[in-house]
């Protein structure tokens, strides 16, 4: 099964796991399966209208899926997706 690597700040919502095995043949399906297994992740990954939050980045290997086929990016058995934070903010 493909795996999703969970960053430190989200592990508490994924049963403390650094890595979760998921099913799915695209990145979108894998993420959906992940949030079905661990529903508490949803609010931190997606906005209210179901879009991936802008500071949540999903990589297949070393590549951001935004520069591949996005949610449609194909994944297979041995693939590893990583959720990687970008950190943003500002004073107003």
């Amino acid at each position: 099964m493909p795996k999703v690597k969970i960053p430190t700040p989200l592990r508490q919502y994924a049963g403390g796991n650094a890595e979760v095995e998921v099913s799915g043949s695209t990145a979108g399906e894998a993420l959906r399966d992940l949030t079905e297994r661990h529903p508490e992740l949803r609010n931190h990954l997606y906005t209210g209208d179901g879009k991936l939050r802008s500071f949540v980045n999903v990589y297949k290997g070393d590549e951001d899926i935004r520069y591949l086929d996005g949610q449609e990016t194909e994944i297979s058995e041995g693939d590893e997706l990583s959720i990687i934070p970008s950190i943003a903010g500002g004073e107003s």
């Binding site: 960053p7 430190t8 700040p9 989200l10 508490q12 919502y13 931190h44 802008s54 500071f55 934070p85 950190i87 943003a88 903010g89 500002g90 004073e91 107003s92």
Partner: peptide
């Protein structure tokens, strides 16, 4: 990585709404 620091030039050391929208838990 336990968290991150940033500065608020000429503003208080309080998180803004923009900070909250972009924040991660735990950090």
């Amino acid at each position: 990585v336990l968290g991150f620091y940033h500065s608020h030039p000429d503003h208080p050391a309080e998180p803004s709404e923009y900070d909250r929208e972009h924040a991660w838990p735990y950090y």
